[in-house]
Write a protein that binds this DNA or RNA. Structure first.
Lengths: 137, 137
DNA sequence: ATGCGTGCAAACGATTTGCAGCCGG
DNA sequence: CCGGCTGCAAATCGTTTGCACGCAT
């Protein structure tokens, strides 16, 4: 089906991006770029954008669109294909959750309305313990 | 709790925006603006943005962030406070669905992780019957 | 009268793209 | 060697904002 996209070339900057993606936090492309620079990398912002995009296509990273409209990325949990998160609206820290029943539910609704090629996003956000403590003083 | 936000003034352009919001489709602020102009209104783009924002705050319109990052709006179903949609990725047409079990689920997960002020977004997208037919020829 | 709402254009912030040179395969 | 990858800067794009003026209250 897929006309076999060319395998991305392994360059220094691509490796650096991969290496940087070690935390479990969602961060914007700009934030990742900033982090890379602060660690001595000379990678360009555009390259980080292009790299994260291609990694997202390969399923190497998760990408979510925040309410602000900016896209946040983080390394994907290896293997596990489909998952959702509970993300803190303040610090971005996220924990993975699973919504077993929901997958089935989505498809039932979809076929009920005769919609095809179903895709779903569940964004669960809140304020994490640390941020709650910080904000209520 | 809320320090009572001032009641929006009812101006010609605000009325026009309200009037235009008659379909059940999600559209971008720019799309609504275009529609208003094409119907003879002279309302400005910035005003449409400001108007839709304030309407969203009042709960008069729904706002969802598309994958592209742009915000889509449509009139809210009267009364019904919380709901979700199955939206066509091609034409934007959406049907309202409800996910009764999910509300409870969201709060269980939240308290499990000690997150507060929980908010959730469920975006169910697919290709509607018409668009499927159109695209497969 | 007062000051919120509006229009316009400039400002913005995130992301994308054109292009010349680099370098991994 | 060659085409994909990179960096940079300029270009887009959606959205926001500053400001002077008009109009709803």
């Amino acid at each position: 089906m897929t006309p076999s996209a060319p395998v991305p070339r392994m360059t220094r900057q691509r490796r650096e991006i991969l290496d940087a993606l070690d935390t479990r936090d969602f961060r914007s492309a700009q934030a990742w770029h900033e982090r890379l620079r602060s660690e001595g990398s000379t990678v360009g912002l555009a390259t980080v954008y292009r790299g994260l995009q291609s990694l997202a296509e390969q399923g190497e990273v998760d990408a979510v669109v925040a309410e602000s409209g900016e896209t946040l990325y983080r390394r994907c949990e290896a293997g596990d294909e489909h998952h959702h998160h509970l993300r803190c609206r303040i610090c971005g820290r996220a924990v993975e959750i699973d919504v077993p029943e929901f997958e089935a539910f989505a498809h039932r609704i979809a076929s009920e309305h005769d919609y095809g090629d179903i895709r779903h996003t569940i964004e669960l956000t809140g304020i994490c313990p640390q941020c709650r403590a910080a904000s209520e003083r």
